[in-house]
Simulated scan of single mutants.
Amino acid sequence: MKTDIYRLERVSAIGHQLLSVVAQEGINQEAIMEDFKLQWMVATPLFDIGEQVNCLSDELIASYADQPWSSIAGLRHRLVHNYEGTNWRMIGAVIEQELPLFIARVDEILQELRSA
């Protein structure tokens, strides 16, 4: 059985990889809106992050209720089930503005859980 720590480690690793590629390649919101290859490239890590978050225990979610767990899982569901209706401007904003903060907080949560 995969633990919450395992799932958060995956979220952290995938998030850091995505942010690294975005920074190295100079990918921005406008580029994501216009380039289907970039859309595919950023969607897969977001699927993975959302799936890991969706499988976190209720206890962990309740313990860290300040995190947007349901929004992250919901983004995954929207990307998977409504791909043609994806708002790529919003996805670009999530990657540029929200993902770095979320991943930093996941790293903090991991440190707390490992030291407990």
Rank of each mutant, 00 (worst) to 15 (best):
T86A: 01
I49C: 08
V80G: 06
E25H: 12
T86S: 01
T44V: 11
S71G: 11
G85Y: 00
Q29M: 10
I27S: 03
D48M: 13
L79V: 06
S20N: 11
V53F: 01
Y83M: 01
H77Y: 02
L60A: 10
E25V: 08
L75H: 04
D48L: 13
L38E: 08
Q17T: 10
P45K: 09
H81P: 07
N87T: 05
A73C: 09
A62S: 15
L60G: 13
T86C: 00
P45C: 09
Q17A: 13
V80R: 02
E34C: 12
V22Y: 03
I61D: 00
A65E: 12
A65R: 14
S71Q: 14
L79Y: 00
T86N: 01
L46Q: 05
R78W: 00
S20A: 14
D58R: 10
Q29N: 04
L19N: 08
S71W: 04
D35Y: 02
P45R: 02
A23R: 15
C55H: 15
L38N: 07
I49D: 02
R76N: 05
S57L: 05
I27N: 08
G26N: 12
A73Q: 09
H77L: 00
S70W: 06
T86H: 02
A62M: 09
I27E: 05
N54A: 15
R76H: 04
A73P: 08
E34P: 03
N28P: 05
E59P: 01
Y64A: 03
S71L: 14
Q29E: 10
I49M: 11
S63A: 12
L19I: 04
V42N: 08
M33D: 13
S20Y: 09
G26S: 12
S71C: 08
A62V: 04
G26C: 12
D66R: 11
Y83K: 01
I72V: 15
M33Q: 15
P68V: 03
L75G: 06
I32Y: 02
L46W: 01
Q24D: 15
V80S: 04
G50V: 04
L18A: 09
Q17E: 15
V21C: 07
N87C: 03
E59S: 13
S70Q: 08
F36Y: 13
V80A: 15
G74N: 13
S57R: 10
A23M: 11
D35N: 15
G50E: 06
S70Y: 05
I72E: 01
A23P: 03
A62P: 02
Q24A: 15
L19Q: 08
E34Q: 14
M33C: 15
Y83A: 04
M33I: 12
E84Q: 11
D35P: 08
N87F: 05
Y64W: 12
I49V: 14
L56K: 05
S57N: 01
W40I: 06
N28A: 07
G74Q: 02
H77A: 07
V80P: 03
D35K: 06
Q67S: 02
A43L: 06
E34K: 14
I61Y: 00
A62D: 10
M33R: 14
N87K: 07
L79N: 01
H77D: 11
F47I: 04
W40H: 06
